[in-house]
Amino acid sequence: MKTKSLNSSTVLLMAVSAAIVVANINYIQPIEADIAQQFNLANAVVGAVAMLTQLGYAFGLLLIVPMGDIMNRRTLIMRLLILAIVSALLAFIAPNIWLYAFASLLIGITSVAPQVIIPYAGYLAPAGQRGRVLGNVLSGLLVGVLLSRTVSGVLASFMPWQWVYLIAAVMIAGLWLVLWRKLPHDPVTTHQTTYREMIRTVPKLVKKYPVLRASAVNGFVLFGVSNIFWATLVFYLQHQYGWGSREAGLFALLGVTGVLAAPLIGRLADQFKPRTIIGVGLILSTLAYIVFGLFAAHVWGLVLGIVILDLGTQFGQVANQTRIQSIDAKASSRFNSVFMFGYFMGGALGSFFGNLFWGLAGWYGVCGLAIVVLVIGFYAHFIHYPHVVRHQATSLNR
């Protein structure tokens, strides 16, 4: 029997940890223009480097995060933080785009500690409070995404952009020291499955649980359209207003609405069907792009659209996490791995194709791309997956 060791201060520590580490993968977005200028690159090339970070994160999710089901999760988290420090330092010293691209890939791979922390929090939380606990930890994750863009953009406006990564390395080192003393010890002390056996079970879990497939597709769509916007915002601000990385970073602060809403969304996911909450996320994200397409030429239009988009992303994130962490606690890390792999594959492709469509068709091309992706999301959620998810109870008993 597991021993519950989760209190409010522990949940707060987990949320702060998720924020600091996940920030690594988003520092590049507001400074893409600065990187392109320093290395004399086309915007699309820098977009490909940003995609490398997201791809690295996705494959870290697929190959590293499942280890949380077969080894001491506290130990895994501490080791990942050390690797994240090394990756950030490599990005800081990179003298050319090739080494920086390699560092960006490593940053993605080694920054998956929050995705071990999230199922760990869900595992330790009482069943009736799982949505609330996950909502609080995920709000920390969103704070990291939010502040990473702001810090990166503002710092790069008055110092070399590389210093962002040195500051990141110092922050993670400080976090490591705190977690060494405060992070709860994993109550599960023995694991019978080897890494190879565990990895082989992942495709079987995807096949067995339709709700897991549905969540992965939904995460792909919602984070994909989020990154389509954030990867191209700095270029739109340059084109429309003559602004730069500082303003792009400051716009990211508007995501505080999603942070504040996350605990409430978690409670809603405990009280209502998570699938209903996910549908709300799709509707909000679509509404955001309608606002971007019609009113982005006005600052208030950008502000309104960002608030709605971040709310839509957060509705989907919290509700999807709540339903996949309720399937089987023994495979919680693998469920999270599959879901977040789909989530960040969407983010990676959103970053790449967002930049590509910006170069081909400008802002309306970016908005059109997002709408097409959202149409796919609506089809999957409202037409395709309702049929297979209704058979979830049968699948669970097989």
Results as ranks from 00 to 15, higher is better:
333 S>M: 06
36 A>P: 02
373 V>A: 03
268 L>C: 10
129 Q>K: 15
378 F>Q: 06
367 C>K: 07
12 L>T: 13
63 L>W: 04
306 I>E: 00
41 L>M: 10
188 V>Y: 11
219 G>Q: 06
88 A>T: 06
28 I>M: 11
80 L>F: 02
24 N>I: 02
227 N>R: 10
358 W>S: 10
326 S>P: 04
233 L>Y: 10
146 L>W: 04
208 K>C: 08
389 V>D: 11
159 M>H: 08
174 G>S: 07
271 Q>Y: 13
30 P>Y: 04
272 F>V: 13
85 I>E: 02
112 V>I: 13
264 L>I: 15
355 N>D: 08
27 Y>C: 06
274 P>M: 05
289 Y>C: 04
99 L>E: 06
67 M>Y: 07
291 V>E: 03
349 L>A: 11
9 S>E: 10
313 T>Y: 14
92 F>P: 07
241 Y>A: 14
224 G>T: 07
272 F>C: 12
88 A>R: 05
227 N>I: 12
159 M>V: 12
205 L>A: 13
109 I>F: 06
192 Q>M: 09
323 R>N: 09
317 Q>S: 05
99 L>I: 13
178 V>G: 05
301 G>M: 06
189 T>K: 15
120 Y>W: 01
47 G>R: 10
31 I>Q: 03
256 V>R: 00
27 Y>G: 05
324 I>M: 09
140 G>D: 02
361 A>H: 13
287 L>P: 02
144 G>Q: 05
78 M>H: 11
63 L>I: 04
19 A>Q: 02
147 L>F: 15
133 V>S: 00
112 V>W: 03
81 L>V: 03
105 L>G: 12
181 R>C: 05
229 F>E: 11
249 G>I: 05
266 G>E: 00
8 S>N: 15
264 L>F: 15
358 W>L: 10
272 F>M: 15
310 D>N: 13
234 V>P: 08
152 S>P: 09
160 P>E: 13
361 A>D: 12
268 L>K: 07
346 G>S: 07
89 L>D: 03
338 V>L: 07
362 G>D: 10
341 F>P: 06
26 N>A: 09
276 T>G: 12
254 L>T: 01
162 Q>A: 13
349 L>T: 15
240 Q>E: 15
213 R>P: 06
373 V>R: 05
160 P>N: 14
119 P>K: 00
